[in-house]
């Protein structure tokens, strides 16, 4: 069963458009949305939450249309905004009292444990919260109604490494139950490498790929070698090349094919998501 099914999503903003975005997230898994700023990650997430209206396409949450069953599906979702909008004059306890009545499944004990776990002050007004505290408060508020599906927009951006790890560890703990799923966007690719099972790469409003992390790392690789290996033909076997004085470095999405082209004189390294984003984002294939 798929927790999330998105097909042919379109939204035209004039200067930017989402173009037939489709991907699925099976139940029980974590999906990371990567892509440069302005790629459309936030728009996709907002469309899923029906905060932004789609123009075409379909979104299904737990197998149900996200607009037709809006209230029912949102009960099962924990949502975290990248810049959470909360009443700044309230403290966390007061804010909780404002938010909690909307959830029938609100579990005070879970909330208290989360607040304790994250070391959050209940009596301090939100405007005095740091970015990290704000994000943790936001997670605590989104997680205390036994949600099955967490949707988060940039939950780790702007957090220091210690808190980031805490948050990621928390995701892993959340995923100890197999009826749960997480969708989160981030441009911190290492966070996604660490916790995602599926990776969906968005660029310029289109899906470049949506696959399991293992597939991505088995298919993509960095090819490194001397510049003598590079000519017009071999270049075209690479998705992007950076050529320097002492050699070149390029990305392939098919290691075996690259091996056939470049042979044993080249070195094949694991490509990170950052490598993939860097090389696929180059304006032209030839830099020189």
């Amino acid at each position: 069963m798929n927790t999330l099914e998105i097909s042919n999503l379109c939204k035209d903003y004039g200067d930017f458009r989402l173009d037939k975005v489709s991907f699925d997230l099976p139940q029980g898994y974590v999906m990371g949305l990567i892509g440069p700023n302005g790629a459309g990650k936030t728009t996709i997430i907002k469309i899923i939450m029906n905060l932004v209206m789609k123009q075409e396409g379909q979104v299904k949450l737990f197998g149900k249309d996200h607009r037709e069953y809006e209230v029912a599906v949102k009960k099962r979702i924990g949502f975290v905004y990248d810049t959470p909008g909360y009443y700044q004059h309230l403290n966390l306890r007061q804010l909780k009292n404002v938010v909690s009545p909307f959830y029938e499944n609100w579990d005070e004990a879970v909330f208290e444990r989360l607040v304790d776990h994250f070391n959050l002050p209940l009596n301090k007004t939100l405007k005095k919260f740091s970015k990290g505290m704000g994000m943790k408060a936001s997670i605590a508020l989104a997680m205390s109604h036994h949600a099955d599906f967490l949707i988060m927009d940039e939950p780790t951006s702007g957090l220091d490494p210690v808190i980031r790890r805490e948050v990621l560890e928390f995701f892993r703990e959340f995923m100890q139950r197999e009826d749960r799923s997480i969708l989160f966007s981030s441009h911190i690719t290492t966070d996604i490498e660490q916790v995602a099972d599926y990776i969906t790469y968005i660029r310029g409003g289109r899906v470049i790929f949506s696959k399991t992390k293992d597939e991505v790392f088995e298919e993509y690789a960095l090819v490194k070698g001397g510049n003598d290996l590079l000519d017009y033909d071999t270049r075209s076997a690479l998705l992007g090349v950076r050529s320097g004085a002492y050699g070149f470095e390029g990305l392939t999405h098919n290691v075996n094919e690259a091996r056939a082209v470049f042979g044993d004189s080249a070195v094949y390294d694991r490509a990170t998501l950052e490598d993939i984003m860097f090389f696929t984002g180059q304006k032209s294939k030839t830099v020189l």
């Binding site: 907002k46 939450m49 029906n50 905060l51 809006e70 209230v71 029912a72 949102k74 009960k75 949502f79 905004y81 959470p84 909008g85 909360y86 009443y87 938010v99 909307f102 959830y103």
Partner: peptide, 10 residues
């Protein structure tokens, strides 16, 4: 807070 409340089950 508009987005926050619109994301609640309402």
């Amino acid at each position: 807070v508009q987005g926050t409340f619109a994301s609640l089950p309402v």
